[in-house]
Amino acid sequence: MTRTSDITPEAGQGVAFGLTAYLMWGCFPLFFALFQDVPAYEILIHRVIWSCVFLIGLVTLLRRWAPVSLALKAPRRLGRVLGCAVLIAINWGLYIYAVETRHVLQASLGYFMTPLVNVALGMIVLRERMMRLQGLAVVLAVLAIIIQLLLLGELPWISLVLAFSFGVYGLLRKQVPLDGLSGLFVETLLLMPLGLLALAWLSQAGLSHFGEAPRTTALLVASGVITALPLLAFAGAARRLRLATLGFLMYLNPSIQFLIALLVFREPLSPVQLTTFLLIWAGLALYSWSAWQGRHPVAAAR
């Protein structure tokens, strides 16, 4: 039976915002694949700098300086925000590297794993009670990693680092009383000095691609803008939808990445990798069923 709260115009707008956010995130590989001969670390530097510049204008336009000012005046909170900033930078940088080296399947697997990592971190760090289905879901994820390690002789390290960096980021982010827009702005603001220093060093060493060609320069600036746009759409969805609904929409992001990896980038999918995905998907099905029954809130995506 459909609940009335899920079919209101407000909820319809929320679904539209949610679909926009997750479709944009899912299509990120297509954008980062446009860069030619620009290393991942340089793209990351510009993503931080131009995100911050764009968010300065956005925060000013939306008159959202109050929560930002409060955060900057609380040094104790800034420690956690700095931790969030470092983790999200690692996540961003590794994701760009995965696209550049055509490991989008591993990136997709990492974001499929993230909700299960959140459950495990909640149990280990926050001492949250893990339901039976959630425990089984985590076991299936661990089994998938073990199978890949034993049969392929290597860990899917990109998947693991992406999942754990974003999982720990979410854990720290819950302890910071900032909304998505303000939080991202403060995080990029803390990384901005390091980004500017790195850019100055690249320019001094003659390694910078910024200004080298109009197309590359435009893409580097745009990398900051596209970082903020899906976040704004997600914020609009979060205000209008139940957390469980957002959780189900979240799977669109890695699903689109999975299809892009196979159909656009033509990445090979071995039987062992397929088995890994099937186990993760089975774990997500159990996790989603548990969340749908109201036994545990589904964690929101980035």
Results as ranks from 00 to 15, higher is better:
Ile7Glu: 09
Ile146Asp: 03
Arg77Met: 14
Phe185Tyr: 15
Phe28Met: 12
Leu189Glu: 01
Val176Ile: 15
Phe112Ser: 01
Arg47Ala: 00
Ser255Val: 06
Glu42Trp: 12
Glu187Pro: 05
Leu72Lys: 03
Phe185Pro: 00
Thr60Asn: 09
Val221Pro: 00
Ser255His: 03
Glu212Leu: 11
Arg240Gly: 06
Arg77Ala: 11
Ser270Cys: 10
Met24Lys: 00
Ala301Val: 11
Phe17Asp: 02
Cys84Lys: 07
Ser290Met: 05
Met1Cys: 15
Ile145Asp: 01
Thr227Ala: 12
Leu262Glu: 07
Ala233Asp: 08
Ala74Ile: 00
Gly167Val: 08
Ile56Arg: 00
Ala213Ile: 13
Pro230His: 08
Ile256Leu: 14
Arg173Ile: 14
Val81Gln: 05
Val59Gly: 00
Val298Glu: 15
Ile226Phe: 07
Thr275Tyr: 09
Leu126Gly: 07
Leu232Val: 13
Thr8Lys: 07
Leu151Lys: 06
Leu178Phe: 11
Lys73Phe: 12
Tyr111Met: 08
Gln106Cys: 05
Glu267Arg: 06
Ala285Leu: 15
Leu286Met: 14
Leu190Ala: 04
Ser5Cys: 12
Ala33Leu: 05
Gln175Lys: 15
Tyr95Asp: 03
His209Phe: 14
Val272Glu: 13
Ala74Trp: 06
Leu220Arg: 00
Gln204Thr: 13
Asp6Lys: 04
Leu162His: 06
Gly57Gln: 10
Leu58Thr: 04
Leu55Ile: 07
Leu155Gly: 07
Val298Trp: 03
Leu207Pro: 02
Leu229Asp: 08
Ser290Cys: 09
Phe112Lys: 01
Arg132Glu: 15
Val117Pro: 02
Cys84Arg: 06
